[in-house]
Design a binder for these strands. Structure first.
Lengths: 226, 226
DNA sequence: CAATCATTCAATGGATTGATTGAATGATTG
DNA sequence: CAATCATTCAATCAATCCATTGAATGATTG
């Protein structure tokens, strides 16, 4: 029995793809690209990586067939390849969140249920509770994005400033965090911080862009609100 | 701006998981485990890997939270962890198939449409065409599994014997291959062989176990049929 | 066409990974 | 409790991966 297993090429292909996804920088890049076609330079800004390094990771993604490129003048634009790639990203993330939640439950001994901790809130519920004024809406995006447009009544604390500024948030209301979109992790991050300090918090299911798409009102840069 | 990007732990977690999936052996192991709890020894038989090697890969999977273990006497049984893991596997595979199909289209210049090449056939269509006798049903599982139960009228050629035994298949009918379940790749593999030699072939969408679940008839070990 | 900008290539060194070997552990059997 | 079986651990070497550097390419501008 020399060849108990002549194993199937689909596994090698899948493994290639998984290995390509197996590096945080590439995942970050992919997630940025998934939000829209972007040039290399822009991606270096967004990630803080070196140019050559970014380029190499991008080419790795390209070899694996996860992104495609197109030239625009001297820029090279990267976009997501067609196909079920976003599904993989979403699935990966949900496994990671799931495992992470389980881990924390084990450590903390379950002061709150794990489902509670990760729970999302739908637009409908958000609207209802906004009318009731029973929530605080927290925009955790960077200041400039907040200035460009925000959900009505939201207050802005970028996630990296959240911990020191927790005092600005009321303890007697549900905090609903949101950020740049379904793929944005800022709000998930914010939730972790909030929960760690005893706040009751959830995150908006679909983020800011989807709110726009749904044709619901926003505040623009001229109102001042926070 | 020293820290353009303090990047989010979820990406590291996801990358860990992806890296764990980034090896064909581990994917093969996971897929076997996904079909049911299995001991290490059984997995070594199924994969043809060394024992220590298998064990290490399994522990890698365990560290990543993708599988869980339980002891049964002197055996250690591995099972899939709870959560959306099967989603990731499915998504990964579908991306791999997608990319692979595109690749072949580019190479072969599209002698047949890619969708045709990968196309699955539903139970409904299968039943209809079985009544018409316009198809050949091909069971590509190992002989022993075939002996334990099969779809009515199926003939059995294990996939590793398929190429030399192609003459047994009629050229004037659609060949419908099936194997052990939605996750089983044998039939996809068979399709590749068949297509490469000019057969017209598809694979059954859901495999043998789902056929059982659907309450449709089977032949058991006592009938002889091929 | 020289200068510049955006991106890629090539080469280096340090770190991680994977297969193999042989020994160690844990559970069962007589 | 000695023997056996299933699994894991530890150590090794080769192969691969990643960040960095500096040079090369390709497209645009004056």
């Amino acid at each position: 029995m020399t060849d108990t297993d002549t194993h199937h090429p689909i596994f090698d292909l899948s493994a290639d793809i998984a290995r390509t996804l197996g590096h945080a920088h590439r995942l970050v890049l992919l997630n940025h690209i998934a939000e829209g076609e972007k040039a290399v330079e822009r991606l270096t800004e967004l990630t803080g990586l070196g140019v050559a390094n970014t380029s190499q990771h991008l080419q790795h993604l390209k070899r694996a067939g996860l992104v495609q490129t197109r030239r625009d003048g001297k820029r090279m634009l990267y976009r997501l390849a067609s196909g079920p790639i976003e599904m993989v990203l979403a699935a990966l993330r949900s496994v990671a969140e799931h495992n992470n939640a389980q881990l924390r439950d084990l450590i903390e001994g379950g002061t709150a249920s794990s489902s509670d901790r990760l729970e999302k809130i739908s637009r409908e519920e958000l609207l209802r509770r906004m009318r009731e004024d029973s929530i605080v809406l927290l925009d955790v995006r960077p200041v400039d994005e907040f200035a460009a447009g925000r959900l009505p009544g939201a207050i802005n604390i970028p996630v990296e400033e959240l911990e020191p500024r927790l005092a600005e948030l009321p303890r007697d209301k549900l905090v609903v965090a949101y950020c740049g979109g379904a793929r944005c992790v800022l709000s998930a991050d914010a939730l972790a911080i909030l929960h760690a300090h005893g706040w009751v918090a959830r995150r908006l299911e679909h983020g800011f862009p989807d709110w726009l798409d749904a044709g619901l009102g926003v505040e623009d840069g001229h109102h001042s609100c926070a």
